[in-house]
C-alpha cells in the first residue's frame, strides 16, 4: 500500500511523540517512540491495515485541532496540552484510540529491553511451557467436610 507507506513516512515526528506520551520513559528506558519502535509499529500497520486506518484517523483529527494548528503542529505544544489533545481524541474516537493503544503496547512489550526490565524471560511460551506446583489432594481436606447439597428434582 503506497498510500499507507507515504502517510506514515510523513508523520514520523508526530507518531514518535504520541508513542512517547502513551508509554513514557521509565528507569533507563526512553519512551516507546524514542526507543525506536516506530518501525515495529509500521510493520504492524502493514500486516493489520485496520491499525493503519485508526492511526490515520487519529493523526488527521490531531492535525485539524485548532490549537495544534495555531502552534504550527501538535509536536510544538507543551506536554500538558498534548496529553489533553490525546484525551479528547480518546473520547471522540474511542475505538480507534483503543486500537492505537493496543498496537503501541504490543510493540513495546515485545521489545527485549522492556522484557528484561519486567523480568519476562520468554520469546514464546512453547515448547518450554511453565512449571507449576503439582496436584496435591490434601487441599481438599476442608471442602470434603461439606455434605452433598445438589438438588435431585426427579426423586
Amino acid at each position: 500500500m503506497i498510500e499507507e507507506k507515504q502517510f506514515l513516512e510523513n508523520k514520523h515526528p508526530i507518531l514518535i511523540k504520541i508513542m512517547d506520551l502513551i508509554v513514557p520513559a521509565i528507569d533507563d528506558l526512553p519512551g516507546a517512540g524514542s526507543m525506536g519502535l516506530l518501525n515495529e509499529l509500521k510493520i504492524l500497520c502493514k500486516k493489520y491495515p485496520k491499525i493503519y486506518f485508526s492511526i490515520r484517523r487519529i493523526i488527521n483529527s490531531i492535525e485539524i485541532d485548532p490549537i495544534s494548528r495555531a502552534n504550527g503542529s501538535f509536536i510544538f505544544l507543551d506536554i500538558d496540552r498534548q496529553i489533553e489533545t490525546l484525551k479528547i481524541i480518546e473520547l471522540n474516537l474511542s475505538d480507534d484510540f483503543s486500537i492505537l493503544i493496543n498496537a503501541i503496547y504490543s510493540v513495546y512489550y515485545m521489545n527485549k529491553d522492556v522484557k528484561k526490565r519486567i523480568n519476562w524471560k520468554y520469546n514464546s511460551i512453547q515448547p518450554q511451557g511453565f512449571e507449576i506446583l503439582p496436584w496435591d489432594e490434601s487441599i481438599l481436606v476442608e471442602i470434603k467436610k461439606i455434605k452433598p447439597f445438589w438438588k435431585n428434582p426427579d426423586n
Partner: peptide
C-alpha cells in the same frame, strides 16, 4: 503474558501516560 496484561485481560487496559508503568 505482558502484552495481554497491558491491553487488559478481563478488565480495562492499563492506563496510558504517566501512570502506565
Amino acid at each position: 503474558g505482558p502484552i495481554t496484561s497491558a491491553i487488559g485481560l478481563a478488565s480495562r487496559p492499563v492506563a496510558w501516560g504517566e501512570n502506565h508503568h
